[in-house]
Design a protein around this nucleic acid. Structure first.
Length: 431
RNA sequence: UCCGGCGUAGCUCAAUGGCAGAGCGGGUGGCUGUUAACCACUAGGUUGUAGGUUCGAGUCCUACCGCCGGAGCCA
């Protein structure tokens, strides 16, 4: 009885008979030969069925196999330079688990909409495999980064009673005859947790009902948000650059094959190491005005403006101290200039846009109450949030990193929708 | 929401206002080394929907629907 192994491990079994269980990726035939490309989720290997060395039944089954049919193959691992993997299987036995019907995804090109309609099947293809594995590595490395620095994981609720930032459009749900909203950020709860545990992070899905139809937007996306007590904006940026460096270097180290599948130019990732440039909003405006003279000082940056800034540098750039007016109510004002907030955005290189948004939070009770009133937010709903400033308030800061934008940048793919297994956009709720 | 583009075979696309086609995928047959294999044959169509112009519309016009990606907003 041959040992059941995964394809990625075949090198350890050279010359031995093994059993592989998987799906037919592709088939080529030539008279008395059948070349079966078998995938099992770990790798793809070519299995050679020669009419002269198997029973007529086995050869007939090899002939019947259609694309994506499930089957169990037993054969001898043999080294072969002609094979892409370096090894192939000389088949002795083949058992059909199920003959697949006509498979919708062919070997030629398809349009995005068609592929997204078949997302449940598209995930079987090489490029999608590579992307989802890189996503996995980014998430694994993200958790590793915070876990190894003694941050406590404190997950925050998905259902929330009110808008965290007031302005953004939220998904509304009926919560036993009350209105509840799907969270757009765990931050406010993260602040409460930071006052309890010191350093914390939360990681979960967030929801935005914005009618955005660009390659950088999803209505449901994943965000990892650290929050740190006794932390100022500069220290916040220190953590952010160490964090992003760790993500990039982990993918380079552990997912190099996947980056190759995606034909990513890794030279652009190698130099992602601290220090990242940090520029004041006013410096950023000077840079933008050279190329976009119409830019009005005090405005937030548009997508084109962000690209102008990120193009100046070979690594992510952090822009800090934005005008308070364009930023959220909870951000602390710059003591040097009250018109600016102690905020920072990290812009990824190569035009991928904002991957991090963070700030030092307002820790003064009266100042925060004033902000809440200025923004016409329901005071009562924020009573608990104000409590945090009443009972042992300390300087604190944090940020949120969008997983999908980060993966798109590291993987070098244009659109965020392929970086999540089942994307949700304004026009996509199926499958 | 606004701006722009695209809707033709299962898929990707072609067709000057004048016979609706190719490649891939499917089916049948052939080949002992294929690498998106190849070769031959074959089936496959309400040209997004509704109206209009015209002797004649896939092609021109109007409306609607769907998708794409850009703006705004954001990660």
């Amino acid at each position: 009885m041959a040992e059941y192994i995964k394809i990625k491990d075949v090198a350890r079994y050279n010359g031995q008979e093994v059993t592989l269980k998987g799906w037919l990726y592709n088939k080529r035939s030539s008279g008395k030969l059948r070349f079966l490309l078998l995938r099992d989720g770990t790798e793809i290997i070519q299995c050679v069925v020669f009419k002269g060395s198997v029973s007529p039944e086995v050869f007939e089954r090899a002939t019947q196999l259609t694309q994506e049919s499930s089957c169990i193959i037993t054969g001898v691992v043999s080294e072969d330079k002609r094979s892409a993997l370096g090894y192939e299987i000389q088949v002795n036995d083949l058992e059909i688990v199920q003959i697949a019907g006509e498979y919708p995804i062919s070997k030629k090109e398809h349009g995005v909409d068609f592929l997204m309609d078949h997302r449940h099947l598209w995930l079987r293809s090489k490029k999608q495999h590579a992307l989802i594995r890189i996503r996995h590595e980014v998430i694994r490395a993200a958790r590793e980064f915070f876990d190894s620095r003694d941050f406590t994981l404190v997950d925050t609720p998905i259902f929330t009673p009110n808008a965290a930032e007031g302005t953004t459009t939220l998904f509304e749900t009926d919560y036993f005859d009350q209105k509840a909203y799907l969270t757009q950020s765990g931050q406010l709860y993260g602040e409460a947790a930071a006052m309890a545990f010191g350093n914390i992070y939360c990681f979960g899905p967030t929801f935005r009902a914005e009618k955005s139809k660009t390659r950088r937007h999803l209505t449901e996306f994943w965000m990892i948000e650290p929050e740190m007590a006794y932390c100022d904006l500069d220290q916040d940026m220190d953590v952010a650059e160490a964090f992003v460096t760790h993500l990039v270097q982990s993918v380079l180290k552990n997912r190099r094959r996947e980056l190759e599948v995606l034909e990513r130019d890794t030279s652009k990732l190698e130099n992602i190491r601290p220090p990242f440039p940090r520029i004041h909003y006013n410096e950023a405006v000077e840079i933008i005005k050279k190329q976009n003279p119409d830019f009005i000082d005090g405005d937030d940056f548009g997508a084109a403006d962000e690209t102008i800034i990120s193009e100046q540098f070979d690594r992510p750039v952090m822009v800090h101290r934005y005008p308070a007016e364009v930023k959220a109510f909870y951000m602390k004002r710059d003591p040097e200039n009250a018109n600016h907030a102690l905020a920072m955005d990290m812009l990824a290189p190569e035009g991928y846009g904002e991957i991090i948004g963070g700030s030092q939070r307002e820790d003064d009770y009266d100042a925060l109450l004033e902000r809440i009133r200025e923004h016409n937010l329901p005071e009562k709903a924020f009573a608990w949030y104000l409590d945090l400033r009443k009972y042992g308030s300390v300087p604190h800061a944090g940020f949120g990193l969008g997983i999908e934008r980060t993966v798109a940048w590291i993987a070098g793919i244009r659109h965020v929708r392929e970086t999540i297994p089942f994307p949700r956009t304004m026009t996509r709720l199926y499958p």
